[in-house]
């Protein structure tokens, strides 16, 4: 680099570098053959839809080509934020999402703690097997089971309540809007508690048994050990999962609400995705529907990064 003669060398190196590049490409041709189709696939199915975001700034009419559309700037967003229904839907989304978050981060932990305390292996296995099962059953089936259990004629819950004399006549659970959030949260709890506890159980299995032995020697009881050893032992796992879930606060999906909801409770069951589905696809207002989707994505990303930033400040570690 300092003297003239060496100036030529990098050129040579470059040339042979280029050659080597092509040579290696030839060598690796099978790797290219094996991956290019999937790269094209991911481009089409994950990146091309992003291009569709532009629709939100147009008044999109399917009959016309993409570039012949009328551009309307932020009109769709202004309309969205001016719609009263939007705030109702946002309230439902956040309401059910926060209830779900609280339940899914307390019940499975307690479930795992109790499971961890069971000494009889057969009983423990059986409970685990049963509790993971609903996770693999579709929401369609679960919605069917839930409405059967809550039904007014011969539903298990109503039968039980009447047998216990808590109520004289069957309660119309599915017809009351104010019950809806609770029903969704409880169904979710029924379906996912066992499954969500797996990860906490795995974390508990990773705790050094010596800690428990030492605590026993020191005379610590069962609850002391749970509180001082087991719970701190799963803290990292808990925090990581919690942060990741906060990112999903606003995108909670719509399956449960779609399947459990009915016209009587629509003011409590409609969530952002269903709102987008209704306007965007059923009413063919594609641009408006896309605007809702963008709002959803942007809020999600902000939530993930701020949750991560808070976590980073506390623990000096990053989740993402």
């Amino acid at each position: 680099m300092k003297s003239l003669p060496t100036v030529e060398r990098p050129l040579n190196v470059n040339k042979s570098k280029a050659n080597r590049f092509w040579d290696r490409m030839k060598q690796q041709k099978y790797l290219y053959f094996m991956s290019i189709p999937f790269v094209i696939w991911v481009f089409v199915f994950s990146y091309v839809p992003l291009w569709g975001w532009l629709m939100a700034f147009q008044n999109y009419k399917p009959a016309k080509g993409f570039f012949e559309q009328k551009w309307v700037g932020f009109d769709n967003f202004i309309q969205l934020f001016g719609d009263e229904r939007f705030y109702l839907v946002l309230r439902n989304t956040l309401g059910m999402s926060i209830m779900g978050l609280i339940v899914s981060f307390t019940v499975p932990v307690i479930f795992a703690l109790l499971l961890n305390e069971i000494r009889g292996q057969f009983f423990k296995r059986s409970i685990q097997t049963i509790s993971y099962l609903p996770h693999f059953v579709s929401w369609v089936v679960v919605a069917g089971l839930v409405s059967k259990m809550l039904s007014t004629d011969g539903g298990g819950i109503n039968d039980l309540l009447m047998w216990l004399n808590i109520t004289d006549e069957p309660i119309q659970f599915m017809a009351k809007g104010s019950w809806f959030w609770g029903i969704v949260t409880m169904s979710d709890m029924w379906k996912e508690t066992g499954w969500n506890s797996i990860i906490f159980l795995a974390a508990m299995a990773g705790i050094d048994p010596e800690q428990y032995e030492a605590a026993t020697v020191d005379g610590a009881g069962r609850f002391r050990k749970m509180w001082n050893i087991t719970l701190p032992g799963i803290r990292t796992t808990f925090m990581v999962l919690f942060i990741l879930s906060i990112g999903h606060l606003i995108s909670i999906g719509f399956e449960k609400q779609f399947l459990l909801g009915n016209p009587l409770v629509v003011d409590y069951s409609e969530v952002l995705d269903l709102y987008a589905l209704k306007y965007g696809i059923q009413m063919s207002r594609f641009s408006y529907g896309t605007a809702i989707g963008i709002f959803n994505s942007v809020v999600s990303i902000i939530l993930v990064f701020s949750a991560n930033a808070i976590y980073k400040r506390i623990t000096k570690e990053s989740v993402i």
Binding site: P49, M55, G280, I320
Partner: peptide
Amino acid sequence: YFSGGMIP
């Protein structure tokens, strides 16, 4: 980390 969303 992202999805195009239902309508796109």
